[in-house]
Computed example of a mutant assay.
Amino acid sequence: MGQMYREFDVSRLSHAIRRLVRETGIGENDARNLVVAMGAEWSSLVREARRLVAC
């Protein structure tokens, strides 16, 4: 069960990274760093990604 949970978690985070890149225009590395730092809380990720784009 632990392996399946980790695979689901990785899949969920990968999806969040791809979606963040697509919807906000930030780079994949920046998106990955945000997801690693903040988790997959979507509204927080979008807020921070938009701050990066504005700089």
Score class of each variant (00 low, 15 high):
Met1Ile: 06
Met1His: 12
Gly2Ile: 11
Gly2Tyr: 09
Met4Val: 13
Phe8Ile: 13
Phe8Gly: 09
Phe8Lys: 14
Val10Asn: 08
Val10Gly: 04
Val10Asp: 10
Val10Thr: 13
Leu13Lys: 15
Ser14Thr: 15
Ser14Tyr: 09
His15Asn: 11
Ala16Asp: 05
Ala16His: 05
Ala16Asn: 07
Ala16Thr: 10
Ala16Arg: 03
Ala16Leu: 14
Arg18Lys: 09
Arg18Trp: 01
Arg18Gly: 00
Arg18Pro: 01
Arg18Met: 00
Leu20Gly: 02
Leu20Trp: 00
Val21Ser: 01
Val21Arg: 00
Val21Asn: 01
Arg22Trp: 01
Arg22Gly: 02
Arg22Val: 01
Arg22Glu: 02
Glu23Asn: 01
Glu23Met: 03
Glu23Ser: 02
Thr24Pro: 05
Gly25Ile: 03
Gly25Thr: 04
Ile26Asn: 00
Ile26Arg: 00
Gly27Pro: 04
Gly27Phe: 07
Glu28Lys: 02
Asn29Arg: 13
Asp30Trp: 03
Asp30Phe: 05
Asp30Thr: 08
Asp30Val: 03
Asp30Lys: 09
Ala31Ile: 05
Arg32Phe: 03
Arg32Ala: 05
Arg32Ser: 09
Asn33Met: 13
Asn33His: 12
Asn33Leu: 13
Leu34Gly: 05
Val35Pro: 00
Val35Met: 04
Ala37Ser: 12
Ala37Glu: 10
Met38Lys: 04
Gly39Tyr: 06
Gly39Glu: 03
Ala40Met: 01
Ala40Cys: 04
Glu41Gln: 11
Glu41Ala: 09
Trp42Tyr: 08
Ser44Asp: 10
Leu45Lys: 00
Leu45Phe: 08
Leu45Asp: 04
Leu45Trp: 03
Leu45Ser: 08
Val46Ala: 11
Val46Thr: 08
Val46Pro: 06
Val46Gln: 05
Arg47Gln: 11
Arg47Asp: 12
Arg47Pro: 04
Glu48Ile: 06
Ala49Thr: 05
Arg50Cys: 07
Arg51Leu: 06
Leu52Gly: 08
Leu52Ser: 08
Leu52Val: 08
Leu52Thr: 05
Val53His: 10
Val53Met: 14
Val53Phe: 13
Val53Asp: 13
Val53Glu: 14
Ala54Tyr: 09
Ala54Phe: 11
Ala54Cys: 09
Cys55Gly: 15
